[in-house]
Design a protein around this nucleic acid. Structure first.
Length: 842
RNA sequence: GGGCGUUUAGCUCAGUUGGCUAGAGCACUGCCCUUACAAGGCAGGGGUCGGCGGUUCGAGUCCGUCAACGCCCACCA
């Protein structure tokens, strides 16, 4: 093939050029005709498209792409789909803010609705269907932005294999898997206390909680014994005295043992309460005796459940205390007291209660300010409350030791990269304290595919849900009618009611292997890609996405969903601080790509070791850019000679020595890649490449220009080495490697075979020749540098002292050494290694 | 309170199964327009590998312990 080596090679424009070429030529198109053993399947994380783009998004994806490219060159057919996680709360919230709208499911659909140009204040209420249409529209736009970023970064994704977690295929898969869980008894619904976000008016799951330090105050409050004696408790939630169901102390606590089994009355409300014992009560905390309310925190729930206490809930789903006076408050004084806090938010009620208790003399001293951790929904702004409601759950081992052990064993079947990440999974599973709550009282999500019969009294029969046939999926029970019913029977006695809830986004994204592999509608494909080879992802979603995926696969297929789980590190800002929107230190990738180029950003990402936290580092990006430029320029030199070179011409010892060193690099880089250590593979290739350009190219320059038979050896060796380096770098710097490859090779470097020791073995010699010759060259350069002379300065004589063996090696490259050193004469002496250079008089 | 990780030059990081005189880039110093590359190249200075103790012929690398930082978990009245 004729060569087309540009005079002034440049990086500018090559990203656009190859991005388009790869798409039009289908370079990364998946060939489904290959057998499972020849396929490398990646369970790509679907990014939350309504989230912000930041360097964390880039980091892991580029690392995965390097692995994908390596596997492809190794001859594997790479199944590399891309999904978008667009369903769920983040999208709803973005739509609410973007358009200034709120979903009101009681409103009717307006087919002519056009969103306001400016977000109105207060927000406009729109129907569920209109709201969902806005969600679809906006996520479609967001997905384009992400796709463009991925393409610009050169991800070798097969774009024909994309999905969005809200699309019909995902809905069908998600509902089908749920129905199977339900039929096997792995999913169930239950009325129970749940952690509730009062702003989003939805239940949240254990995995979505986070603690935040909040100010609070201890109130020391008197409860009263029949004798009139006071029993003091301390609480941060005096507003829940009205919801108190018992006092509790530790069974061994001598101070309170006499009280166990007796009754006390609550202050203000005069409600009679038992005093009970439970080892969870901490004698060291507060006064050592606590009030149990339904429910102020999760320990209340534990006590309530384990001690079988009464239910006296006062906090409603709105977050306010109930308006009517609870039936258990019977005294007139108590009813009058409650009237003063009815309908208030907890904070307001707390202040009022402090006043009332102070007036009645039941508050001992002033409230004492403290800071304490409070549970929040990770995306929420107000503390979670605990309310009773009916929700759907999937059993996850949190309440079942056998299942927990089985899931731990499944996790043990996965190869964790790096291996300590396996401990994070293990600890999460060991720490689960309840089943997985999957229902959400939201709108933009996959519907729970169930209806309930309505009995003659108009009550719903939750125990006997009506289920759709799998062939009818996806269904929306709020608009679709169950088999055997008519729309007119919706919500009437003797009819049916659709479940209004949607599933949590993880309930769908936990099925990404099944979704991408088309478990639902293409068993042939699924059989070729499942279980997948690798799940790459961030460490923060081990407890959600990774765990849930493993759980669903365990239930449905009885195997782990992938052989390897490759967990990337956390991304920190340039000051090594955690990036977050609130700190305003989020670094976005687009400007960096524009400034340094995609290859430079890729280089930075590939320098982050597996599982190691990595700071955004512009210096590293600059090095990446320089490496890419170096490849261009070195290639221009290496290809600047004869078109037709024959590898049989590689006869010079120095050339064969260089190739021997390169062969070792190939072996090491391959070994590193095989253990998913892409960063090491890059480092090894890079170190070798700089030696190649700095020393080898300089040593053979004279011979290469000379053009004699020895020149042909250099020409062929240069090209053989260049072709090898391009393939070693192709997983990291796909654009520049493809560009150079195209100068003199057919096809894409990304479909070229990964370099092997075998292909070089006929051309290698003693690696020591190149090594020691480089040392001598460095010594001569040092002499010139010390003499403040130009590297082009002539050297009258170079005297080399070394062992006899070394001298023999150096002599094999004497002509090259003399040319590179500009040495007139070269002399040798046996002895300790030393190089004495005498510069010619200028 | 429990667990995991990190701690190596001023900065950002490498150092595979213990064998080095401890490496790279940035920054710093000096030199060089040498026909691949001056948004480059060559050469150089700079570290008691967090502290203490141990195993070993030999430890940045293994063991113990302490400390600092980060992350995760915890029943936070």
């Amino acid at each position: 093939m004729a060569r087309t080596v540009p005079d002034k090679p440049a990086l500018e424009g090559i990203e656009e050029k190859w991005m388009e070429r790869w798409e039009s030529e289908g370079t990364y198109r998946f060939d489904r005709s290959r057998a499972r053993e020849q396929i490398f399947a990646i369970d790509t994380p679907p990014p939350t498209v309504s989230g912000s783009l930041h360097m964390g998004s880039v980091f892991g994806y580029v690392q995965t792409d390097a692995i994908a490219r390596y596997q492809r060159m190794k001859g594997m057919e790479v199944f590399y789909p891309m999904g978008w996680d667009d369903n769920g709360l983040p999208t709803e919230r973005r739509v609410q803010n973007y358009y200034g709208v709120r979903c009101d499911p009681t409103l009717l659909y307006d087919p002519d609705f056009i969103p306001p140009t400016e977000p109105p204040e207060p927000p406009m209420s729109i129907s569920r269907r209109n709201f969902i249409e806005l969600c679809h529209g906006l996520t479609a736009e967001d997905e384009k932005v992400f796709e463009h970023l991925w393409r610009t970064l050169g991800l070798s994704v097969d774009w024909t294999q994309s999905y969005a977690t809200i699309d019909e295929h995902c809905q069908r898969t998600s509902q089908k898997a749920f129905l199977r869980n339900l039929r096997r008894g792995e999913a169930y619904s239950q009325e129970a206390p749940v952690l509730w976000d009062v702003d989003f008016k939805s239940a949240v799951a254990q995995a979505e909680l986070e603690d935040r330090e909040r100010p609070g105050s201890y109130h020391r409050i008197a409860f009263h014994r029949p004798s009139g004696d006071a029993v003091f408790i301390e609480t941060t939630r005096p507003e829940l005295v009205c919801a108190c169901v018992a006092l509790v102390a530790h069974p061994d606590d001598l101070r309170y043992q006499p009280l166990f089994g007796t009754v006390v009355t609550s202050p203000l409300f005069g409600v009679e309460l038992p005093v009970v014992a439970h080892e969870l009560a901490d004698p060291e905390k507060g006064s050592g005796i606590a009030m149990i309310c339904t429910w102020g925190d999760t320990s209340d729930v534990t006590w309530w459940r384990e001690l079988d206490l009464a239910t006296r809930a006062v906090i409603q789903q709105s977050g306010r205390l109930r308006e009517d006076t609870p039936e258990w408050i019977e005294s007139d004084a108590g009813r009058a007291a409650y009237a003063q806090i009815a309908g208030l938010y907890p904070g307001q009620a707390q202040r009022k209660m402090a006043e009332l208790l102070a007036e009645s003399g039941d508050l001992d001293g002033e409230p004492r300010a403290i800071t304490h951790p409070v549970k929040f929904f990770e995306k929420g702004d107000r503390p979670l409350e605990i309310v009773s409601s009916r929700q759907w759950y999937i059993r996850n081992g949190g309440r079942d030791e056998d299942l927990r052990r089985a899931l731990l064993a499944r996790g043990g079947e996965v190869d964790w990269i790096p291996d300590f990440m396996g401990a994070r999974y293990k600890h999460w599973v060991e720490g689960l304290n309840g089943d997985w709550l999957i229902s959400r009282q939201r709108f933009f999500g996959v519907s729970l595919p169930v209806w309930y019969p309505v009995d003659d009294q108009g009550d719903l029969d939750f125990e006997n849900p009506i289920l759709p046939a799998e062939g009818a999926l996806p269904v929306d029970p709020t608009t679709d009618v169950p088999p055997g019913y008519e729309e007119s029977q919706r919500g009437v006695p003797g009819g049916f009611a659709g479940d209004p809830d949607v599933m949590d986004t993880w309930a769908t994204s936990s099925l990404t292997p099944q979704i991408a592999g088309h478990w639902d509608d293409d068993p042939d494909l699924f059989g070729r890609v499942f279980p997948m080879d690798v799940r790459p992802q961030g460490p923060e979603i081990i407890r959600t996405w990774l765990f849930a995926t493993l759980l669903r696969s365990h239930y449905e297929h009885g195997v782990p969903p992938w052989a390897h789980a490759a967990i990337n590190g956390w991304i920190l800002d340039p000051e090594r601080k955690k990036m977050s929107k609130s700190r305003g230190n989020v670094v976005t990738p687009i400007p960096l790509i524009e400034e340094y180029g995609a290859e430079a950003v890729r280089y930075w990402a590939c320098n982050g070791r597996p599982g190691t936290d990595t700071a955004v580092d512009f210096g590293v990006m600059k090095i990446g850019r320089r490496l890419a430029l170096k490849i261009l320029n070195a290639a221009r030199f290496a290809l600047g000679f004869a078109d037709d070179v024959d590898v049989a011409a590689i006869t010079e010892p120095l050339d064969r020595s260089m190739l021997a060193a390169l062969s070792e690099v190939v072996a090491q880089s391959t070994a590193a890649f095989d253990r998913y250590d892409y960063a090491r593979a890059l480092e090894i290739a890079e170190k070798s490449f700089w030696t190649w350009t700095d020393d080898y190219l300089e040593l053979v320059k004279g011979r290469a220009y000379d053009g004699a038979a020895a020149g042909a050896s250099a020409h062929a060796a240069l090209q053989l080495a260049l072709g090898t380096y391009l393939r070693l770098f192709a997983p990291f710097l796909p654009f520049v490697c493809e560009e150079v490859w195209s100068w003199w090779r057919e096809g894409s470097v990304h479909r070229a075979p990964w370099p092997s020791v075998t292909e070089l073995e006929a051309h290698i010699g003693d690696p020591a020749v190149f090594r020691i010759t480089s040392e001598v060259l460095t010594a001569v350069r040092r002499a010139k540098s010390d003499a403040k002379a130009s590297m082009a300065a002539e050297v009258a004589s170079v005297t080399i002292a070394a062992g006899a063996e070394s001298l023999a090696l150096i002599r094999q490259a004497e002509a090259d050494l003399k040319a590179a050193a500009r040495a007139v004469e070269m002399a040798y002496a046996e002895g300790e290694f030393a190089v004495n250079s005498v510069l010619a008089a200028s």
